[in-house]
């Protein structure tokens, strides 16, 4: 068996002094696959995701990227390797091109117009979108610009925190197809927090169910959605779980 891209080992996470969010979470995230993270509101899905690029600081020796403890890595370099999309795309002032060029620009690297066009295309946008003001885009377009912006850092892993929850069905499908294509062409490893059963069925290679900070089920999505032991997996299959 291949070494996992990301290994989570007995991760416990506590906020402040008292409130524990994650309990002894252990999980292997395979390279080049889409791992879907599902669970009810407040189950710790987003927190777990945020630990993977250290937007929340995980404890030492709990999360490994390519077998290296991520708390020993330079955090800025880690975040370029592990890109992230949020529920709503927060675009910066300026044009679409300004947004796409943001990441490399942080360390003095300039992207050519050709590179920007290529990134936009990878994210499913026409190359001539580059000069549009970022403020004039629809939600679906904005999320795809955010995707192109994350791809500009040439990440190996993409964390998706319900990026389609505010999009209409067509825009949602478009983002899903783009992410599937990126998995196949670039070999991207994707961790996808989702709440829509159809989305999981269409995209997930592996499914993980998180309840109250514990992983209660994980494995093949078809198996889990049909005959899982935990009653919430069944609920999820019937579309009963809300989003955060």
């Amino acid at each position: 068996m291949m070494t996992p891209k990301i290994e989570i080992k007995n991760l416990n996470l506590t906020f402040g002094n008292n409130k524990q969010i994650l309990f002894d979470v252990s999980l292997d995230i395979a390279a080049g696959q889409i791992t879907s993270l599902i669970g009810p509101s407040g189950s710790g899905k987003s927190t777990l995701l945020r630990c993977l690029n250290r937007l929340w600081e995980p404890p030492e020796s709990a999360i490994f990227l390519d077998s290296t403890d991520i708390t020993t890595l330079d955090v800025l370099a880690l975040r370029r390797q592990v890109g992230m999309l949020f529920q709503s795309a927060a675009l910066f002032e300026g044009t679409v091109a300004d947004n796409v060029a943001y990441g490399p620009g942080l360390y003095g690297q300039k992207l050519s117009a050709g590179q920007i066009a290529e990134l936009l295309e990878m994210a499913g946008l026409p190359a001539d979108a580059a000069q549009k003001p970022a403020g004039e885009l629809s939600g679906g377009q904005a999320q795809r610009v955010a995707l192109a912006r994350a791809l500009a850092n040439q990440p190996q892993v993409l964390l998706l925190d319900e990026p389609t929850s505010a999009l209409d069905p067509t825009a949602t499908r478009h983002v899903e197809e783009t992410v599937l294509r990126l998995r196949d062409t670039l070999g991207l490893t994707v961790v996808w927090v989702s709440h829509a059963i159809e989305q999981v069925e269409r995209t997930a290679d592996k499914l993980v169910l998180l309840v109250d900070g514990n992983i209660v089920e994980s494995g093949d999505p078809d198996h889990l959605l049909s005959g899982a032991h935990h009653h919430l997996a069944g609920d999820f299959a019937r579309g009963k779980l809300g989003s955060d």
Binding site: L55, L76, R79, G83, F92
Partner: peptide
């Protein structure tokens, strides 16, 4: 907050 965290997630320092 969303803008700031987005920038951080793209590899920005806190100052940036």
């Amino acid at each position: 907050k969303a803008q700031i965290e987005t920038a951080l997630a793209l590899g920005a320092t806190q100052r940036q």
